[in-house]
């Protein structure tokens, strides 16, 4: 028990020191991205407590009210209301939460699925490689929206199905990238050196190949988070996404599009949030990639 306490107290300053060092290494843009990311995460996590209204509460008498500072602004609706008189701020906060969960889960599933297939394909070669790459080609040939719509139409658009569909999105990109990297790496002398040392296939895959293939994966992961947010909005717009009245950033943009000339704030607020999410994710992704590479770390 005493040991655990000692361990705890010594771990905390170490963690703080580590964080301080990371902050010290980062440049201006990266620091901004860290701030934005932390802020978005906090806001998304505590959305139910921060939001002034229920996201689905309608108030038809106060429809299409503009944000603060404009004529016809209504007290208590800081960023205005939408076509059913729902608070845009509250809906955006709840939408942010749901969107972040969907995007993170979706991108992670895609990464794991595609990454594993690519790794297996690249290392095994032969018939396994042919089959996996055949599936990748098939996936590229069929528009993903079609698959997504079909899946949602058959299984219904619950959150769980939605996560799975978004997870399927982009797996072929991961598979192709990982396979290419793996095949390049497998020809490197240090892989042969590992084989000559007596290393097993698993050791080569997870200790020598995968860590060296991480950089392009991180980049693809960050790209796919933004793509998934957009896909989710497409599906919502087509009526197959998360069902109304539940708010996601994508569905708010999709529905608000009709009111763009008269009530642009319905679109602008969630669109700004999407922008901030993608900005933070991309900058942090690049930064993470550089930090993960020992060769770039001390520059």
């Amino acid at each position: 028990m005493a040991e655990a306490v000692v361990g705890n107290t010594s771990a905390r300053p170490a963690l703080l020191a580590h964080a301080a060092r990371i902050w010290g290494d980062a440049n201006g843009v990266q620091r901004a991205a860290i701030c934005v990311a932390v802020l978005l995460l906090i806001v998304a996590a505590f959305a139910p407590f921060i939001a002034p209204h229920e996201p689905t509460a309608q108030s038809l008498i106060s429809r299409l009210r503009p944000p603060i500072g404009f004529e016809r602004f209504k007290d208590g609706y800081l960023l205005g209301t939408d076509e059913l008189g729902r608070d845009v701020l509250s809906r955006s906060l709840h939408g942010l939460q749901l969107t972040l969960i969907l995007a993170a889960l979706g991108a992670t599933i895609g990464l794991l699925l595609g990454g594993t297939l690519g790794l297996v394909s690249g290392i095994a070669g032969g018939i396994v490689d042919d089959v996996v790459m055949g599936a990748v080609d098939a996936q590229i040939a069929i528009p993903f929206t079609l698959i997504a719509l079909l899946t949602l139409a058959i299984f219904g658009s619950s959150i769980e199905v939605m996560v799975l569909v978004l997870g399927l999105y982009g797996w072929e990109q991961y598979a192709r990238i990982v396979r290419g990297e793996v095949r390049r790496l497998m020809a490197m002398p240090f892989i042969e050196a590992a084989r000559a040392a007596g290393a097993s296939g698993g050791r080569i895959a997870f200790r020598h190949v995968l860590p060296n293939a991480v950089s392009p994966l991180v980049v693809q992961f960050t790209l796919s988070i933004s793509n998934i947010v957009l896909l989710e909005s497409t599906l919502s717009f087509l009526g197959m996404g998360v069902q109304p009245p539940t708010a996601t950033l994508g569905s708010m943009v999709g529905i608000g599009r009709d009111y763009l000339p008269t009530a642009p704030w319905i679109v602008i607020v969630p669109a700004m949030m999407i922008l901030l999410v993608t900005f933070a994710v991309q900058i942090l992704g690049d930064w993470l990639r550089d930090r993960a590479d020992v060769r770039l770390r001390d520059r």
Binding site: M188, A196, G198
Partner: peptide, 24 residues
């Protein structure tokens, strides 16, 4: 075979490419 490789090790031509860049 893997066990046998303990007795016979190899040194390669290109010292830049025959070490995994990510390992200390």
């Amino acid at each position: 075979l893997r066990a046998l490789r303990r007795h016979a090790q190899m040194v390669f031509q290109d010292p830049y490419a025959s070490l995994n860049p990510r390992l200390p």
